[in-house]
Design a protein around this nucleic acid. Structure first.
Lengths: 252, 252
DNA sequence: CGCCATTATGTACGCAAGACACAATGAGCT
DNA sequence: AGCTCATTGTGTCTTGCGTACATAATGGCG
């Protein structure tokens, strides 16, 4: 098989433009039809899945590298994207790449940093599924949403990364207006509640939930109602705080 | 001036044992005489201060590198130490090192990674000041505790690192038994309260504070009392949860 | 032996969260 | 048109936690 020219360059010069031994990985969450979704890539020739990731250019801040990865896979920019952990184990499974490179006709030099050790800084992204336009990267032949509960086992240490991302999301969901990033601009109260229930893995009381949300002050009710449902039409709401950014923590 | 042989080797081979462009920095907090302390190093020939840090060996996990830095500066092991952020800006002030190297008689090759760009993973450590035995590293001539409020301006981006470390500490103080790591085994309730007040920057009600702490279940009262004070002798308490380890999060 | 700063402990109030009930609506059916 | 019924909108009561505040107990000191 012919080597992809871009990939072949990776070991003949292009790697010099990159920060060696360093990468970013993005756990990109979405919410659709009452289910939490995770964006995954399928590697060419491996038929196995991983988180979207990429290398860091020598003149590129870490955060910008993560934003670039997110933009290239989803077309989105200026959405919630936040670093949550650096994964720096000695063996994170980089060797799994070697057969993939060989199948692509690329011969990585022995002990090249790409197939030896990579420290990866992991980012958590929250996006509106409806706005995403998916596109795989040079290493993968498919890019799609997976239901979080049906997701396949991932390459490298990406299962651990995903687990910590989910833990981080759960821990911050109730005191940051994170839901604003996962829902469309206008949404109904039951939709918001189902998002909370899905992320937290619990069931909540409708009335108390609504009260809490409104008391919180993050959301405001619109005069519109959602039509077409087979029952009483629910009100629409919107988030009032700027999306993404953090909020107050009060003490004592 | 003669070059320190260890430092000279840094650009003649020893750098090959290290992960290029990568370092760890430790914000090591202590508590003594009612004040929150930060451990700082003074750089030779620069007379300026920075956080303790170090490079990561090629066969060394990130967490181990941080633990090694902590051990080498304080003699402590198995204490609270947790990664909290990766600082990955393009220019974090690495160039400040060049005059220091020159004064030490070491000539860094132009564009060597050590003086161009370094991504640093920052760790937060909490230690019992009484157990610490300080020792500077090869780059510094002094290692000492600073009162957090009197601390000097730091080199590189270490002021930003310190600020985020403090923010992290504040945010987690009330739901993790972090204080266990900053106090001796036995302590009085007023001591614990002063620690909280110092870290949070607020003043707290004695009675409510005591009630909260005991309801929390982290601490238990001993039958001993502290003698020697000029007033009613306070009870001693101890933490019941295991010290040192962080809470639920550990990965890679 | 009384003074006084400090510690130990108890009580009252307010607010927010949780448990729970009932009215209103909109589509589809007969 | 009127009934059914799942779903949404709204109110009340209770409980528990955090906060405000007051009083008794100690131990050294003059």
């Amino acid at each position: 098989m012919d080597a992809d020219p871009l990939l072949a360059q990776l070991f003949t010069g292009r790697d010099r433009e990159l920060m060696p031994h360093l990468s970013v990985d993005c756990t990109i969450f979405g919410f659709h039809e009452g289910q939490l979704k995770l964006l995954l890539l399928r590697w060419k020739h491996l038929s196995a899945w991983s988180l979207p990731g990429g290398f860091v250019r020598r003149d590129e801040p870490l955060d910008s590298a993560a934003a670039r990865v997110l933009r290239e896979r989803t077309g989105l920019d200026h959405v919630f994207l936040r670093q949550f952990h650096a994964f720096g184990g000695v063996d994170r499974g980089e060797a799994a790449l070697i057969p993939a490179f060989e199948a692509m006709g690329v011969e990585p030099p022995k002990d090249h940093w790409i197939v030896s050790r990579i420290v990866s800084v992991a980012y958590l992204a929250l996006v509106d599924v409806a706005k995403v336009e998916l596109s795989p990267d040079a290493w993968s032949d498919e890019c799609r949403w997976w239901d979080l509960n049906d997701r396949p086992t991932l390459l490298f240490d990406h299962d651990a990364i995903t687990a910590l991302a989910l833990e981080t999301l759960r821990a911050q969901l109730d005191y940051l207006p994170l839901a604003a990033n996962l829902l469309p601009q206008k949404f109904t109260m039951p939709e918001l509640q189902r998002l909370y229930e899905t992320v937290l893995g619990t069931s909540l009381d409708r009335r108390n939930f609504q009260k809490r949300m409104l008391d919180q002050g993050f959301i405001a009710r619109l005069e519109e109602r959602k039509t077409g449902g087979a029952h009483r039409s629910p009100y629409l709401y919107r988030f009032t705080r700027s999306r993404g950014r953090s909020a107050p923590i009060r003490r004592n």
